[in-house]
Design a protein around this nucleic acid. Structure first.
Lengths: 213, 213, 213, 213
DNA sequence: TATGAATGAGCGTTCATTCAT
DNA sequence: TATGAATGAACGCTCATTCAT
């Protein structure tokens, strides 16, 4: 959340920079509002207020509410992919270690942050925004599942994973992660969920229980 | 579309009955609309039209849109619980068989029907309707998880489940089922998902692979 | 301008009647506003206020501002045509008498009333509302000119009109009438125009000067 | 789109000249837009774009939209008057020849050009812009009618015009010309109108039919 | 002088809610 | 009880006007 009023010391950054700042503020504010209220219930007035700009300014950056929403989600998905794709390719590590690293990254970078809320937002609005659902499927789901499948197959080849059918349903591998995301939004106040622990247990199911030395 | 003047031949089903019919029609229509559009985007005009009643009639049965939504969800959850709680208590069966039966019931009764959409609706609107989320947690989630935990513990006691930590995270057991529900709504047109098969594989992870004779 | 509140003595006219009254009030109000401000500058808020209804009520009768405008004009043109077409077909009268009667009717029924303003409104907005211009041409202009041409030809045949070319330009016969309409709206406060007199003089040109005994 | 930095080779036409150029471009663009859309529906954004200047630049030349419109019309009227007042004062010609020359000039210089659209624009917006209507009356209408009246009186004196009352309604003389202007804008696509021919016929009415030798 | 990003009042339209019938 | 016409607050979007650069 950058203050819209640049401190006097700063030498008045150029126009483009200022515009980018404003746009950023709008994006942040809109994201927050969309997450908090969903698409239909979000008021552009509130977005503008939260972003510290006038209502009309939003329309200098986005064609209308709908395309703002779609563009926002698309934009937000990119770092989501990046934060996951950033899994270090340690070829010498065990598959379990790789998956575990990946899972931890997910929990830290997604499940416990606003990125997780975006995932829930997509689940919530997807049916009304096929373009969003399509994009999400293409950029995140299909890629993510392909990556998981590759991991699973490697695990099977190396003998780390015994259930050969798992490769057909990589969804199983990520299911608890998604559960964690949804749990955060809906039930964490009723009963906290230790996502990291849960993922460990789940990985034990997949890879066999770790011999606790 | 029932004629307002009941023909004299009809034994004049009493008023209460007629009212209940109307109310039922409204509930059905509202449910469909809420599922299709979400809370905020649903128009009571459309609900009334779909239910075949006048707009004002809705207000004879519900205080306002919000409480209608909450009441609807609550009402819809009951058969959800019932359809799941109806698991026959075969004490002689293996735990896996019990869980499997339960899972199949879920797939058939929930994941592939409108009930699944209701689950997604709760995920979507839950944060804006704490009362709904609370009710859902109390009536479905906590009970369901308790039941699952009991099953798991029985499985552990009987030696069917080796991972003792699983009892701490019964969410893991239901995670793929929830995935199936969400997948139906969002991605089934991109790639169909055989939920039954997926659950089988998942149960293989939990109970150990079935020796396919 | 009918009072929206029916006097208590009246036995509460039925719904349809009330609706027609309201619609009539909206039409009146909208006509006045459109004439006074033109299409773009007319505010539906003002129309509603003037009609004594809520803004939303307008939308119970008209799809949107644009179609309201077009429908209004179309509706207003009908009595315009009628008031002109009502020229009594006195076959024994001279052509001049017929044209004169027609002209007087026009001056009395159109040029000096709000109907004249509607003509000016069509001139003003026609280019932006081709549908309006088309309708006006079809229903009023082409018919009116055809009628005029018939009169002129009759006049020529009877020897009342000597200039045979006039039949090719019946516009000439109506031009002063249109001038009168426009003059009313724009310049009557600068210099009043005695339209009746002017038409007499014009007819003298067409039919030859009357021998004022 | 003129480069803001004038190349050194150019003898740097002074600022005032550049400003006048810009102002001219704005005037042209605004005129086109006002004619095409009317006052209220014209967007200064479009004017600026069409003129090739920034929106703010308009405000360096005009106080606001309203006064721009009024000033524009006033400015546009001047050449209108000039193009008409430029009637050569051939004292030896017949009055009919003079009027005919005048009429042809009008058809060529006004009715078939954008100037005619300006006349229609004044008819359309006049009631909302009394200043415009006043100015137009003062500068064009009253002068034009006075000129016409003088012609008519000369015609009467010379025996070319027999109807002495015509001098009281010089409007009759110009009515067909105005009709031609309006017809161009509204109905020329439905039925073309040969304005020159029509004016000839009209003059035959006024001056008596020409003996076609 | 010229720019165009930013503003915010204002408008068309929608829709939950009311109420006379 | 049921209706649906009527309401009016609220929202998305536009555009004349301003002003920092």
């Amino acid at each position: 959340m950058v203050s819209p009023k640049r401190p006097a010391t700063q030498p008045a950054s150029n126009r483009a920079e200022r515009a980018a700042e404003r746009r950023g503020a709008i994006v942040e504010a809109a994201m927050d509002e969309f997450i908090a209220r969903g698409f239909a219930a979000t008021r552009l007035d509130d977005v503008a207020k939260r972003a510290g700009v006038a209502k009309g300014t939003i329309y200098l950056h986005f064609k209308d509410k709908e395309s703002m929403f779609e563009e926002l989600i698309r934009t937000a998905i990119v770092p989501l992919v990046m934060s996951l794709g950033a899994a270090p390719p340690r070829p010498d590590a065990t598959v379990r270690d790789m998956v575990e690293g990946f899972a931890k990254t997910f929990i830290e970078q997604v499940a416990t942050t606003r990125r997780g809320d975006i995932v829930r937002l997509i689940v919530a609005e997807g049916p009304r925004f096929p373009a969003v659902a399509d994009f999400y499927y293409r950029e995140v789901v299909s890629r993510g599942l392909a990556g998981m499948r590759a991991m699973i197959e490697l695990g099977i080849a190396r003998g780390e994973i015994s259930n050969k059918n798992l490769a057909r349903f990589p969804q199983i591998l990520v299911a608890p992660a998604l559960i964690a995301v949804i749990w955060q939004s809906l039930f964490s106040k009723h009963a906290p969920l230790d996502a990291i622990e849960m993922l460990q247990v789940h990985l034990d199911l997949v890879f066999g229980e770790r011999r606790t030395t």
